[in-house]
Amino acid sequence: MALILDPNIADPDGFYDTLLAAHDGLSAAESADFNARLILILANHIGDRVILTEALLAASD
């Protein structure tokens, strides 16, 4: 399996809204901490090191 880079989330506007809402009321530092936790949780869910490496590459592109 490869990293999915085509649309894969139903209701993208709704998810985007929820993602931003999770940061409501957080300072820049708190948001950075939140994002770090979120990345670790999602990375663990994916688990596959090949896909994680592809994601790191896609994010730095």
Binding site: A32, D33, N35, A36, R37, I39, L40
Partner: peptide, 9 residues
């Protein structure tokens, strides 16, 4: 940030 996130989780 990542270190503290790990400890928190």
């Amino acid at each position: 940030q990542f270190r503290d996130a790990v400890l928190h989780l």
